[in-house]
Structure formats: C-alpha cells, structure tokens
C-alpha cells in the first residue's frame, strides 16, 4: 500500500513541479505585481492600489475589454458556423476520404500563425485578391484595400486561422455518434432534418462547446492580428496590455489588465457552462 502511494508521489512530482514553477508561481507573481507602484528601482517595493483605481476610473479600457470580448465571441461564432457543416460533410458524406480531407483542412494550421495573418493582409490589400476580384466584377472602381485595417479584417483573419481547431473537436464528436441512433430516429418518425435537430445536434454539442473554448480563449487576448490588420478600429485589449509592458514600462498596470482579462474569461466561461447545462434539459422540447 505505502509502496504504491510513494510511487504515485514520485510520478506526480515532476509535472506538478513544472506546473507550479511555470504556471502557478508566475501567475502569483503577476498578481502581486499589480499592487506594486512601478516596475523598477525603489518603486518596485512600494505597494499601492493606484492602478486598480485607475482601471476602475478608465471607462475607455473597460469598454475596450467589452469590445474585445464581443470580437472574440463573434470570431468563435463564425468559426462554429463554418466548421460545423464542414465537419458534418466530412463525417456523413465523405465516406472513406474523410481522413484525407480532414488532413487537408488541417494543413494550413501547420504553417506559422504570423504567415497566415500576413497572407490575409495581402489578400485584403489594394493590390490583393479581393480587390482584384471586385474590380473584375465591377464593384470596385480603382484598387483599394477591401476590409483591411478594420475590426472586420481582424475577425476574418482570426476566423480563418482558428477554423481547423474548431473543425477538429466537432469532427470527433460527430464521428462518435452511432449511426443506428439516426436510423432509430428515422424509424420513430423523424425526417432527416428533425433527426439532425433531435439527435445529431445534441450529441455533437460537447464538440461544439470544446471548439468554442479553443477559439474564444486565445482570441480574447489577441494583439498581433489587430496590430497587423486592425488599423485604428480593430485595436483589441491585448494591444494595450502589450503597450503597458513594452512602451509604457507600466508593468503593474499591464499585470492588472491581464488579471482582469483572466477573471472576465473565467466568469464568461462559467456562465456559458451553466447556461448549457440549464438549456440541455429543455433542448428536446424547445426545438423540432
């Protein structure tokens, strides 16, 4: 008995240590930093709530956080709307070729994230693909950047980048659905669309939720994409955090803003999980 316990302890210690050293401690460090006066010198050892007061007073930062949350949510929604039919097609229509086709979907994800965003910058620029297309069709009179340097460009570029990561969990969830269940639904009176709503959709929901988290969490803190294609409109919360650390030398403020973002994310995700649980019960009666 004691032997297995001590063996378990030995096994668990290295990963636990890694987690503590590279996750828990830095998080605590950041949390304490938000109470410091400044980043360097004697200011480092002075404690204050001034940054907290500043953040609470600064409605521009708060609204920017709200805007960034909305953009992250938008991106996640579009990803799901695009990825679901894709995964559905792969599972239910592609037959034996589904794995090969899925690999094709994933290939862009093997390239550098930065390259993908820059590719969009090219596509949307005045000499880019989209501009040329619109000119050819007659919708554009002269070469002009289309969508570039705006919120929309950020959402488009991010949606494209994260699509494979959302398609994957939905694919996995759909694959696990026993085809007999759909036959049973048909047998019990469901035409295909109703079988989808009553059986396929509810059973694939865990995959959809997982996909949502995959996108929402990293997108909320994005700053590279807004910096490259966001222009003035598309600035996100992450850009300001970056400013605080790199240009403003205001590490405490940066730490504080990061903590606030983390908190907001946890609250939102908690709400989402609760909402899903609550909805699940009535899902059957609500639709179809």
């Amino acid at each position: 008995m004691r032997d297995t316990r001590s063996r378990l302890l030995i096994l668990i210690t290295p990963p636990a240590l890694l987690l503590i050293m590279f996750f828990v401690l830095p998080m605590l460090n950041m949390a304490t930093f938000s109470f410091r006066q400044g980043a360097f010198g004697e200011e480092r050892h002075m404690w204050t709530l001034a940054h907290y007061r500043e953040f609470l007073r600064n409605t521009a930062f708060q609204r920017l956080l709200g805007r960034s949350i909305a953009m992250a949510f938008e991106t996640s929604l579009y990803c799901i709307i695009l990825a679901y039919p894709l995964a559905y097609f792969l599972i239910f229509r592609a037959g034996e070729r589904r794995v090969a086709l899925l690999t094709l979907v994933l290939v862009p994800a093997w390239t550098s994230f930065l390259l993908r965003i820059l590719a969009w910058k090219l596509i949307l620029s005045s000499e880019g693909l989209l501009s040329g297309l619109l000119q050819a069709v007659g919708l554009l009179a002269e070469p002009k950047p289309v969508l570039l340097y705006s919120r929309a460009a950020v959402v488009v570029a991010l949606t494209y980048s994260w699509l494979p990561f959302v398609a994957l969990p939905i694919f996995a969830a759909l694959e696990r659905i026993d085809p007999h269940l759909l036959e049973a639904a048909a047998d019990l009176g469901c035409p295909p669309w109703r079988a989808f709503l009553r059986v396929t959709l509810p059973l694939s929901l865990p995959g959809v939720v997982a996909g949502f988290f995959f996108v929402f969490i990293p997108t909320l803190g994005e700053w590279v994409t807004p910096a490259l294609v966001g222009g003035v409109d598309g600035i996100m919360y992450g850009n300001i955090i970056q400013d605080q650390f790199v240009r403003g030398l205001n590490w405490p403020m940066g730490a504080l803003m990061s903590l606030v973002m983390l908190l907001a994310m946890l609250v939102l995700l908690g709400l989402l999980v609760w909402l899903l649980k609550a909805l699940h019960v009535e899902l059957g009666d609500l639709i179809g």
Binding site: R63, I235, L249
Partner: peptide
C-alpha cells in the same frame, strides 16, 4: 510626464 503621456495615448487608442 512619460507615464501621463503613455496613459493618454493608450486612452486614445482604446477609445471607440
């Protein structure tokens, strides 16, 4: 001054 100016600039960038 530097801190004030950085704050102003961030407010400008964050404003809708």
């Amino acid at each position: 001054q530097r801190t004030k100016w950085t704050k102003v600039w961030d407010d400008v960038k964050a404003a809708p």
